[in-house]
Amino acid sequence: MDCRSSEKYINAYLDKDLSAGKEKIFKAHLAGCADCRREFDQYRLMKEQLDGLEVLSPAEGFEGRILSKMEPYKEPARDPRRDLVLIIGYFITLFAVLNVLTTAAVQNLDWISAIVVVTRVFRDVFDGLIFQGMLSLFIIYPIRIFNWARIIFSELSPEGRMAYSLVIITLLMLGAFSRSLLQKMSENLSKEH
């Protein structure tokens, strides 16, 4: 190890988060480097100070003030927005399932072939995105979308989460089917010409 990485080692060592091997390397470096030893001592002292930060207490009668504002416990009422998400989720899922079934029926496919079609459609979407030069979009937006999704997800009840997941899956499937349909239409058009 060198002095540049010693700060990371110092922190990990003070947190007892170094493996035995790394700890040995770190101690050997410290023994031979006065600058890093000084740095280590400063961090160690700061850690002691931080660990010794005073535990503070609220003013007397804190419990009483809270209890006086409390009402007998009752189950919180269901948030109607959650029910709405649930209903929309189920509705879209039903719509997507019907779409899959009708597609399978129209194309005279058995169950296994229908599953194969769905799988291919997913593959097509990802291939399509890349071939259409949307790679940058594919890198930047998923991070933002993932963050939004995570925040929304954490706010929902278990039923809401289920509905939310179904909505996402359904949207993906609908996107995939739309693209597949467009592709078929364009193929038919080019055949006619």
Binding site: L53, E54, V55, L56, S57, P58, F62, E63, I66, L67, M70, E71, P72, Y73
Partner: peptide
């Protein structure tokens, strides 16, 4: 106990965690 309607039992929770919560909020 609280979920069964004994709201005053909540005092035990407040006493146990008031310093941790207050210290964090204060800082």
């Amino acid at each position: 106990r609280i979920l069964q309607g004994d709201a005053h039992s909540y005092e035990e929770i407040i006493t146990a965690y008031k310093n941790a919560v207050f210290s964090l909020c204060y800082r």
